[in-house]
Design a binder for these strands. Sequence first.
RNA 1: GCGUCGGUGGCGGAGUGGUCAAUCGCAUCUGACUGUAAAUCAGACGCCCUAGCGGCUACGCAGGUUCGAAUCCUGCCCGGCGCA
Length: 412
Amino acid sequence: MAGNSFRIEKRGPGRARAGVLSTPHGDIQTPAFTAVGTKATVKGLTPTQLKDAGVQVLIANTYHLYLHPGEATVEKLGGLHDFMSWQGPLMTDSGGFQIFSLGSGFGKKVSKFTPEQASPEEGVAVYNDELATSHGKLAVIDDEGVSFTSHLDGTLHRFTPERSVEIQHKLGADIFFAFDECTAPTETYEYQKEAMERTHAWAKRSLSAHRQNTAANQKQWIYGIGQGGQFDDLRRESARTIGAMGFDGFGLGGSFSRKYGDNSLQSALDMLSELPADMPVHGLGVGEPEDLLLAAAWGVDTFDCVTPTRNGRSGSAYTRDGRINIDGASYVLDSAPIDAECSCYACSNFTRAYICHLFRAKEMLGPILASLHNMHFLVELVDEIRKAIHESRLEAFSVAFLERFNKGRQLK
RNA sequence: GCGUCGGUGGCGGAGUGGUCAAUCGCAUCUGACUGUAAAUCAGACGCCCUAGCGGCUACGCAGGUUCGAAUCCUGCCCGGCGCA
């Protein structure tokens, strides 16, 4: 089997749909939750564990793999699939998100990479703070591309749309994304418009660079990304523009964290109405249960998110009755599993008390089990969403799930 | 017994006359986490409350000096070390 294809099998209610996204490395039943494996690894989980949790597809990151180990190394070792020993469908993100997280998002949240903690004598590779923050950020944008100061060692690097595509060709994922500028939803209208227009220009260049590479073009699909922040008119314009360029699929761009307000995802979803009806759509960074339900109802086919592993590592576990901090004092003697109705390895074999103990004792199995459970939970949720779409009962499923999930959250 | 150094909040450990309820680390408690700068981060952490540049009690114990003491003096108790 060569090439990719997308087939919608069931539509409704509304824009919701279920189908099959075929890739050279297998089929993806959609909607599907995509596990994030930024540096060619889903943090803490083996490919076998991912498969057992029901994961169908992973997404790795261009910026991170370019820095470490370098795309040439990955290519020499047979490409990303062989390198990380994941023979299922793979995506790569373009590095556009890092424009945001290392750019305007830099320093917005206190991180461990503060100058005081950058101690060379400990042998830890840290960035050169003087160099890195000479602009107050690690990424500086111009119309041609982006200059990055590596967060690892302070060295300077340059990404352009062509460069991002070239790297993603070498990584060899089945689906990859055009280089875009991810913005914070809090940016002004003027800035969102500017970033959107830049993203459109870059999309055109990314697409062109890909189509010119015949070999890559036969194996890999490229998705264009729409932006526009929380401004509906920009979002729609972006969807129309990207949707008409001839991409193989579409990515909902942005950052949907709650701290930016509740309508950032909704405004992005409005883009769906402007896209070709059969174009596959990926929601970038959509991963809280209520957002998965919302996005699926609007017709998003795949989504990726760090929520299962990042939350898992920090001791936050999903349950049908809301999310709990499993390392909390109230679970020290709790002999129930994380979620009594969950069939994952963690819930089938271990108590909350045990996992709580692992976290308190700083044992690595704690984050592993919590990540494993969260992954299973979110993948299963999307599986249930897909099933509900096929059985024409998405709304009822959604209402029931959310009522219980939010009620549990309030009780907590 | 003599000498000497030391006894600070759950622990370690700063502070050595005023702005000290007391730096900091650990532990503890709570919370956050949406295309991973993240095995991370934030807040709380003597007691009380109407939650405030609020009240009270505190730096081994008891006195004293001083306008003012965790900080100086005396005695006692306890611990380390040295000499007997």
